[in-house]
Nucleic acid binder design. Structure first.
Lengths: 353, 353
DNA sequence: CTTGGCACTCGAGTGAGTAGAGTGCTAATA
DNA sequence: TATTAGCACTCTACTCACTCGAGTGCCAAG
């Protein structure tokens, strides 16, 4: 059977209406829509066709129709109208970002929270690094009697440090030597390249400072690894409960706990090579527990070799047009904010973390 | 009316049973308990008394009794049996702590998560500083052409840093001067004491480095404030849904969102001067939304002038004995862990945050 | 003081009956 | 040929009356 224009139109109206009402949609309701110039009977025929084609489902004989996963897929890909953000909406998104991003304490947590607020759905926010990180330069500062401070500037322009308690006193000259050796041998090297072999060589040439080398190396590897690992946050779980499909505790609990247990942690991988905004409808989600939910996600640019991703989780019946629009706009605003020159300090401020 | 021993015993049994079953308790059920040598009728009389004394409540005429807030209070303060942790329980708590605390990335988040796991309830974990923080010493490192790194060692032995981009070039000698001035004037000073007055004086004596002073001051104040502010995490919200009292979405949603919005943020204040384990029963909670829940919390010691607090939230009908025991043990284990010498690096590692 | 007995209350669960929304099919219509 | 009106049919959600049983309070006997 062929998918005529009219069939598409009917499908679109059904999905639109179902998104609004969360109730199965009947032929009468569709026929009554302003620009639908057909009788309920005609619509019924179309609906029967759409059902047999797999785009609609019927909870039971005398109920209206509900979109199937395939129906949503088609809707998302072809049918849905562009949602234009109102000035109010863009304004409030921008305000939220401006206001909240002053302190970059828990960046991803905050982004997730904001996205969740903007969409009224649980949200995820991830930052991951696209390239590997290395140390650009080491400094050693003598701090009081028995301790020194190791300062390392990373390839990302971030600066990290560690206070090292000395087991034995160390001379200023030895410290200088150690510093020179570190800078000569252990810069421009990523975490995986710190072999035992290298470490031995460094220790041999470090003189009195040799005993410090293992501590330094451990710290550096740990730091680089941490810098490279994805930083992820989920916020606003509770908003799922606002959706009529989660009025049954069982369902809600199953989904919420799977969110809590990090069911979303494989999303970044999905997004890796994609661009723009991506929608996963129901069964397309990898996790079993999220079979009845959809995910919308998009990338943004943090700058400094950091790649950001934000996404939301909701019932398959969610307002894809609106959510997609808000999410995209959000991503855009975030990208802008992170790359505004006067905000260049932000990623740096992260160095404290 | 007097609260006889037998009345207490009856009350204790009712609370115990209600905690187990979450169903109103009838006189028959109590009379059938092994060491209760009275008939249902007698128990009924006692229950009537306890009800008129305000320790019990009756959902409706023909239902059993349920403890009132006052009843729980009495139970917690006097009646409940000590809960002895089994070897299994202590073991698994210790294992969890050992295993998870290797990397101290998001300390409070992890603690909260663990506590929540150990108690099957939503948990909160807070770290707050008991004394105010000051800078102990400044260092300035020239990093490449146009930037310097400011390193500040705090009174807490933690080290923080910031990369500062220079608007104009600065000579090595000027940098030395600036460093000296900073160390002379801005150490041993807590966040509130950075007056505009002081800043002006510093700028006057800083020579070429004067333009950097505002940046430095802003960073320092921000850092000190951040160090002093409490660091808090809540985990395991979802576990509330496991409790029969939150089978109604409305209730669950109200409580969960208030948790999400930080309803617990005033708990640390409550705990400030208290010691040991504290229980807040129902209406004793300050927040309106938590009227029907109880909170159990206790302190632990992070060392380094840091004060920790862990707590859980649950229905007023919760197993106070068990929760209290596990929480106390948890706090004890955490204190031990944080103050073990070979783990002394942990709080230092936090310096990176 | 304790206990057995008894009438009473009230919620939870059951089952029949009804209203109404929606369908599929057929025959009439443009 | 495509559309529509009409109609019988299906199925759920809701209401209402009814019963069952757990639990109570009170009284009188032990």
């Amino acid at each position: 059977m062929e998918l005529t224009e009219r069939k598409k139109k009917v499908l679109r109206c059904i999905v639109d209406l179902y998104i609004r009402t969360a109730e199965p949609v009947g032929s009468k309701a569709i026929a009554q829509l302003p620009d639908m110039n057909y009788s309920p009977a005609t619509i019924r025929n179309e609906m029967a066709d759409l059902t047999s084609m797999g785009y609609l489902e019927q909870p039971h004989t005398s109920a209206g129709r509900v979109p199937s996963a395939a129906g949503y897929r088609l809707y998302v890909d072809e049918l849905m109208a562009d949602y234009r953000l109102s000035l109010d909406e863009t304004q409030s998104i921008n305000d939220a970002i401006e206001e909240k991003m002053q302190r970059v304490d828990k960046l991803m947590e905050k982004v997730a929270r904001l996205v969740s607020q903007a969409t009224d759905l649980p949200a995820i926010s991830v930052a991951s690094r696209s390239a590997s990180v290395t140390v650009k330069r080491f400094d050693l500062i003598k701090a009081g009697e028995g301790s020194i401070i190791l300062v390392a500037m990373l390839s990302t322009e971030e600066v990290v440090n560690k206070l090292i308690k000395l087991p034995v006193a160390i001379e200023e000259t030895d410290l200088k030597l150690l510093g020179a050796v570190l800078n000569a041998t252990m810069t421009q090297i990523c975490a995986d390249e710190f072999t035992p072999n290298l470490m031995e060589r460094v220790m041999n040439s470090a003189g009195m400072g040799a005993s410090l080398v293992p501590v330094v190396v451990e710290f550096v590897i740990d730091t680089l690894r941490r810098q490279e690992s994805a930083n992820m946050a989920v916020a606003g779980h509770v908003r799922l409960l606002e959706q009529p499909e989660y009025q049954s505790i069982d369902k809600a609990q199953r989904v919420l706990s799977s969110l809590d247990e990090g069911a979303l942690s494989n999303l970044p991988a999905v997004m890796q090579n994609a661009s723009g905004t991506k929608v996963l409808v129901g069964p397309e989600n990898i996790t079993e527990e999220l079979k009845d939910t959809s995910v919308v996600m998009t990338k943004f640019d943090i700058g400094d070799g950091l790649q950001g991703m934000i996404g939301v989780v909701g019932p398959t019946r969610m307002d894809y047009a609106k959510v997609t629009a808000r999410l995209s706009y959000f991503a855009e605003s975030l990208s802008k904010m992170f790359n505004k020159p006067e905000q260049a300090q932000l990623p740096t401020a992260e160095a404290e973390e």
